[in-house]
Structures are given as structure tokens and as C-alpha cells.
Design a protein around this nucleic acid. Structure first.
Lengths: 211, 211
DNA sequence: CCGGGCATCGATCAAAAGGTGGAGACCGGC
DNA sequence: GCCGGTCTCCACCTTTTGATCGATGCCCGG
């Protein structure tokens, strides 16, 4: 197709993963790994300097900016490289922000090398490359839009997941117990559950809240 | 020290991680990667055939046997190789079973290459190699033994974390509500909390239960 | 053989949570 | 300018949960 190689930037805080991606991708004659970044900030900087066509982006870095934020920062610029998210985690809490941030694709790290190479070529061409598992969940998400919690509802739910009582939540958020109960009632309806603990379980499963 | 190279078996279901570990370790002149396994069962088999000194073992595989079980199977044989666990996860629920299963060391995947190589040599010599974060938590665990839940208590707590009511749990386990409440009261006391949701939060944090 | 941890139940009572059915205020879009 | 969603709050009532007393049988180890 193209005489020029696809220039790749690898962004991951794990040295082992960087080495692995490099080893896997270097076997492809039309790929050129031009840089590596160990932090999200570094990835943004290197991507801005314009030497890459595709950025392989991890989502979780040790500290500071995360992969979704970095993706948003990279894709915001005109003429930006494509961002292909490559991560271990496939919950909605990871995928949705990344996709909103403008990621061209989303792969899981257990993908076989051929799939990885194919995804890089797909992304370089500007087309979307999604892992089957991710694609499945996105479809389910679109089919069941009831899970869309509001900001406040998510906030309350997160405190519930920390083990706070309605009283404790009302104090933390400067609300009355009535308001907290009202928010929770909406959360239960949207998640199809009928108790705080079940809501936490469901939300963890859906990736709405974390840990 | 030794004229013979340290023979290494890599067991991980992620091709990228296998390639990464291989790339990182192959730069050491006294290391020889003799085999790779993509499943825990395969790792046990290859380890039994006796060609390796150290097994780098992931804990989570796509399906079937997990890394701890494989570690137990490997170390059960006389003259078994040392098992060095290399994983992304550092919760008690991961580390404790692995160490009980006889792992010689426990590293996190974000370890720098030098630390990894050093740990392999330490493990090959039969000495324990622990990542600092893991060592820290083990010390805390020994200092606070109150968190030791009984089998039944853990079982009940796991169902609480799935969102079941006491009634639901009693039916699932063929108990009366009184018994469930009794178990939970003990759990709350041991975890230092006073509600089911807080217990789930604490247990997730401590890695006593998962997901 | 006896103590202690474990697992199983009972009863009572106060506190918390959940269900129902509202209402007012704000804000953005059609 | 009105509609709908969001966020805030109120009251009443039922169910669930947690706290606190118990009690029994089992098994294991000193």
C-alpha cells in the first residue's frame, strides 16, 4: 500500500510491556517504532512533536495524567497521530472515557501479535479497531441506555461503595438524608437493583465505579 | 558464580508480556529462556519435564488453572524449579495464595528490568525475592491478624458483595437468617466496620474478596 | 477430657434503609 | 416560553439490618 513505514510511539509505564510491544511489532517490516514514553505526559509531548503516525497508549500510568487524558490532549491538535489504546482492562469505566477522548481503537493486551499488527494498520488508515470483547460491550451499552447515571448519582454511589451510610453521605456532600435517598432511589431504578450493596456490586461489574 | 546459564521458563497468557519478558531477560548473558507457556497447565507440564531453573509465572490466565494452582503443582515435585510470580496485581487475595503455594518470589510487572534480572538470580539461588510493595503489605498483614475470616464468614461476605440480602444469603446457603446475621456480626468486628456495604468496601480493599 | 474456636440457631429492640408520592428551583434546548 | 432533566427537599410507612443478649453441637489439640 504505502512505501513509507508506519511510525509508532509506544506509551506504557511498564518496561516489560514496552519491550514486548516493541518485540512483537518490530517483526513487521512496514512498522517503525520511533519512540517510547514511560509517562502520559511524555507521550503527549512526543506525540506533539509530530514524529509518529500511531500512538499505542496504555490507560493506567503510575501517577499523574492517565491514558484517557493523554489521548484527549493528543487528539485535540490538528494533524495529530491516531491513538490506539492497548490495555489490560476492559470495563466501561476504562473504555468509554478513552473512546470519548478520541481513541481510534481499543485493544486488550492479551491480543495475539497478528491482531495487534492488524489493528495498528487499521488505526494508521484512520479506521476504528476494536477488540471483540470491547465491541460486544459497547453494543450492549447502546442497547441498554438505562445505566446512564447523572454526575450526582455517581457521586453518591461512589460514597456508598466506600461504606458510608446515607447520613454520612449527606454530611459529606452537604445534603439532607432525603436528597441522598432520592438519588439512590434513582440509581436503584437505573441499575435494576433494590439495595445499596447490590447497587455497588452492579456498578462495579459495569465499571461505573472503581475498586 | 556459575558457568551454566540460568534456564528460564516464561508462563503468561499475554503474548506481548511473554515477548517483553523475553526481550528484557535475553540481554543478560547468563540467562537462557528455554520455553514459554501460554496456559497454566502447559507451564506445569513444561516445568515437570525438568529443563528450567526458574519459572516466571503469571497469576491470571484466561481460563482453567490459575497461577497459584500451577505454582503449587510445580513446587510439589522434588527437584522442582523455583517459581517467581510476576504479575500486575498486588492484593492479598493474589499474593497470599501464591506464597502459600510455594512461590520463591513475587514481583510486579512494572518493575524495572534490572530489578527483574536481580530477582531471577535471587530466586535461582533459592532465596526469596519480594517487590517492596508486596513486602510492605505482608508486614502489615502479620501485624494485624484480626482480618483472618473463617471460611464460612468469607463465603457469606462474598454473597453480600454480590448484593444479596440476609434472607437471600440464608436461602442460598441453606441457613437461617439468624446464622447469617451471626456470621456477619463477626465479620464486622474483625474488619472494624459496622455495615454490610462498609464490609464489602474493606474486604475489597484488603483483597479478601474479589471484583 | 476439657477448653476454645467454629458453625448453627433464637429473641428482642433500635436504627437504618427502602418505597411511595409528592414539590419547588434551575437550566438548557426546541 | 414551555418542556424535560437534574438537583434539591419533605412526610409517612414497611422492611431490613445491626446490636445484644443468649444457646447448642462439633471437632481439634493440649
Amino acid at each position: 500500500m504505502d512505501d513509507l513505514p508506519i511510525r509508532i510511539l509506544i506509551a506504557d509505564d511498564h518496561p516489560v510491556v514496552r519491550a514486548g510491544l516493541r518485540a512483537v511489532l518490530e517483526t513487521e517490516p512496514d512498522f517503525a517504532i520511533v519512540a517510547e514514553a514511560a509517562t502520559a505526559e511524555e507521550a503527549v509531548e512526543l506525540a506533539a512533536s509530530g514524529g509518529a503516525d500511531v500512538v499505542l497508549m496504555d490507560l493506567r500510568f503510575g501517577g499523574g495524567m492517565n491514558g484517557s487524558q493523554a489521548t484527549a490532549a493528543i487528539t485535540a491538535r490538528p494533524g495529530a497521530p491516531r491513538v490506539l489504546v492497548v490495555t489490560t482492562y476492559d470495563t466501561d469505566a476504562d473504555t468509554l472515557p478513552a473512546i470519548e477522548a478520541g481513541a481510534t481503537g481499543y485493544l486488550l493486551k492479551d491480543a495475539p501479535p497478528e491482531e495487534l499488527a492488524a489493528a495498528v494498520r487499521t488505526a494508521a488508515a484512520g479506521r476504528t479497531a476494536l477488540a471483540p470483547a470491547v465491541a460486544d460491550r459497547l453494543m450492549n451499552r447502546l442497547r441498554a441506555p438505562h445505566t446512564a447515571l447523572t454526575r450526582r448519582e455517581t457521586e453518591v454511589l461512589a460514597l456508598v461503595a466506600e461504606g458510608l451510610s446515607n447520613q454520612g453521605i449527606s454530611e459529606r456532600l452537604h445534603l439532607t438524608r432525603a436528597t441522598v435517598k432520592s438519588h439512590l432511589a434513582h440509581v436503584y431504578a437505573k441499575l435494576g437493583v433494590d439495595s445499596r450493596t447490590a447497587a455497588v456490586a452492579a456498578a462495579l461489574g459495569l465499571g461505573i465505579i472503581r475498586r
